[in-house]
């Protein structure tokens, strides 16, 4: 099927199998491997991207659902080579260890800050509750998001 969509500000018109998942489209067709897959059933959040302003698990989105949508992936966070405040804050707060959950975590945090520029700690924890991290214990991730919000 032919569909049109926008990823990271770029318009695409592609012929895609209707059962293809967004995560596969991003990783395999567009080469955007920053979006990771950890479980394939929407439980770990590694594949989180922003679609229509909201954080979604790209493993649960099928190609037809992206028709006419604007999608942002981790690759879109840095602008002109400059890291986004969230990325800077994750780095300076030691919130990154193995880094496999980081892209999804950043996109959930970005979606939160796009909707709420001054979230409470509880709101931050809820916003990333669908993103599993096995390395950090979340403390430093929550601090990093808080600090990025304060810097906005």
């Amino acid at each position: 099927m032919q569909i049109e969509f926008n990823v990271n500000g770029k318009e695409y018109k592609m012929d895609i199998c209707p059962t293809m998942r967004l995560v596969d489209l991003l990783r395999e067709k567009l080469g955007l491997t920053g979006t990771k897959e950890g479980c394939g059933e929407g439980e770990c959040g590694s594949c989180t991207v922003i679609m229509g302003g909201k954080a979604v698990n790209s493993c649960l989105v099928l190609a037809p659902q992206i028709r006419g949508q604007e999608i942002l992936t981790v690759e879109a966070l840095a602008k002109d080579g400059q890291l986004d405040g969230l990325q800077e804050s994750f780095i300076s707060n030691s919130a990154i260890q193995c880094g496999y959950c980081t892209p999804g975590m950043l996109m959930s945090a970005k979606a939160l800050l796009m909707a709420n520029s001054n979230p409470s700690e509880e709101e931050i924890k809820i916003a990333i509750s669908g993103n599993l991290c096995r390395c950090t214990g979340y403390n430093k991730i929550v601090n990093a998001i808080k600090e990025a919000a304060e810097g906005n």
């Binding site: 990771k36 966070l77 840095a78 890291l83 990325q87 994750f90 780095i91 990154i96 880094g99 980081t102």
Partner: peptide
């Protein structure tokens, strides 16, 4: 002193290539 993990910027950009990538 605290330094970020060596490849933190690449991880934050989604650029680091893992085996699965």
């Amino acid at each position: 002193q605290t330094f970020p993990i060596h490849d933190a910027p690449q991880k934050a950009r989604g650029e680091l290539v893992y085996v699965s990538d």
